[in-house]
Every structure is written in C-alpha cells, then in structure tokens.
C-alpha cells in the first residue's frame, strides 16, 4: 500500500529525515511517534507530496505518484493536517461536499449520488444536526470532526493523519480516533498517523514506528516500543510502564 525506500530530506544542508524505510500494508493502522522536531511531520509531508524527497522514493499503491495529478491522488489519499480547517464562514455541509471534488470533472455539478454520500457521512460522523452551521461558529473539536467527514467523503484508500488530536480535550480525542477506527473497520482503510500521545498510540495503532532526529529508532508492536529504556533514550525522561487493566496493552505514567 505504502512503501518508503531510503527516504531522505535535506533543506539548506540540514538533514530533516535521513534514510527512512518502512512499509504499511493495506488495512493496517500505523502510528508514527517521536519527540518534537523528530521529523514526523516532514515525513508526512513527503508522503502526501507537499515536499519533494531529496533522496530515495515514496511508493503509493506500488507506484511513484510524483507525476500523478493532484486530483488523481486525492481520489485515493486523504490528508488531515495539524491545523485542520480554517475557521472560514462556510457551512458544514458545503465543506464536507468539497470532499467530492477529486471525483468531479472540472465544472461538473454534484450528482444525487454525491449528495447521498455526503448525507450518509454526515450521519456517520454525527454532524447531521450541525450541517447548516458555519465553520467559524464551531469548536475546534467539532471542526476536526468536519475535517474527518470531508476526508471520508473523499473515499480514499489511504488516510494520513498528522496529529489529529493535538488541540483537543480527551473527549474529542477519543471521539476523533473512534470515528477513524470505525471507518477503518467498515472499509478496510489504511491509516498512517502521527500521534503525540503515546497511550492513544498504543490503543489505536496496530504497529508503531519511533522516530528521533530524522531516523527510525525502532518499529514494532506497542509492547516492543513502549519500554522504559527505549523511551528514556529518546524523550529524555523516565516514564513508568503499566498494563492497561482492560485492554492489556502498555500505557505510560509520567
């Protein structure tokens, strides 16, 4: 589905990402974790095509997509950025409808089918009651839900999430990730996400990739990554690892 082969990125002789290789299989949910400035967001931008790689290559669906048009790519890949949607005075409905854009030809009107898909997604994300509200009247959490709905309407095969929960309270954090999880189970979507919260990463991801100073430190299950020694080396603090009493996965205490 997604394959990075010896990817490096250098800007003004400063190495942001160096020789990173990993694969994400179809239907997996993989988490990218690491301290601030580790190069996680840069890596996401290299994958989404916002930045060009300096060396190595990024293969999506087995192909180098550099020459794909924006539209063609957006038909198969949705991206949720850290900043999310600007608080622009546009209704929730019209914003979610924009997700259909890559599937429409230039100046083609939305069909009844498009309208149905939007209604369906609004229902799935619990936005039906908010659909006539303007984006700038919503809270940050609600706006992030709109962003996910828009990505969902895009009907991608791969979803890239760059810290989708960073400005949200714990209620919205789990809500956003539960929506993504349910979506994944429904459609077999592949997800790659950057997460700051290691406990959430352990709960929602099948596999974790730990990055530091532009390089992969370790990848594997949450049990492999969330150990005191590994985290201590990267985060310069000594967390305690405990077991989640119900889900039987490692969780950290500070």
């Amino acid at each position: 589905m997604l394959s990075l082969q010896h990817v490096s990125k250098t800007v003004d002789e400063q190495t942001l990402v160096s020789d990173v290789s990993f694969d994400v299989e179809a239907g997996q949910c993989v988490g990218l974790i690491g301290p601030n400035g580790a190069g996680k967001s840069t890596l996401m931008k290299l994958i989404s095509g916002m930045y060009d790689v300096s060396d190595g290559q990024v293969l999506l669906f087995g192909q180098n997509v550099k020459r794909w048009s924006h539209k063609k790519k957006a038909q198969r890949v949705s991206v949720l950025t850290q900043d999310g949607l600007a608080p622009y005075p546009m209704t929730v409905y019209d914003t979610v409808m924009m997700g259909r854009y890559p599937h429409l030809k230039f100046f083609q009107r939305e069909s009844a089918d498009d309208l149905n898909r939007v209604d369906h997604v609004l229902a799935l994300t619990g936005l039906t009651d908010l659909k006539d509200q303007m984006l700038d009247t919503l809270s940050g959490g609600e706006r992030q839900r709109v962003a996910i709905a828009k990505a969902m309407v895009q009907e991608p095969d791969l979803l890239l999430l760059d810290e989708p929960t960073s400005f949200l309270d714990i209620g919205y954090q789990t809500e956003v990730l539960n929506i993504v999880k349910a979506w994944q189970q429904r459609t077999g979507l592949t997800v790659l996400m950057v997460l700051h919260d290691l406990n959430l990463a352990a709960q929602y991801c099948d596999r974790l990739i730990l990055i530091n100073q532009g390089e992969i430190v370790k990848q594997g299950s949450s049990d492999d990554i969330l150990t005191t020694e590994t985290l201590e080396a990267v985060y310069r603090t000594t967390p305690q690892i405990v077991r989640h009493p119900i889900k039987d996965i490692p969780q950290i205490l500070l």
């Binding site: 924006h70 949607l85 600007a86 622009y88 019209d94 854009y101």
Partner: peptide, 23 residues
C-alpha cells in the same frame, strides 16, 4: 468556473492541496 476552487482555498492552502486542487 473556479468558484469551487476559490472556496477550497478559503479553507487553507494545504487543505485545498490535499483535496485535489492544483493550488
């Protein structure tokens, strides 16, 4: 013919880019 693209630019350059607009 570019009204839709203008609306998407309003949501932010990156958002438009990822939605398939050739910004």
């Amino acid at each position: 013919m570019f009204t839709r693209e203008l609306n998407m630019l309003g949501l932010g350059e990156e958002v438009a880019h990822h939605s398939g607009v050739s910004v």
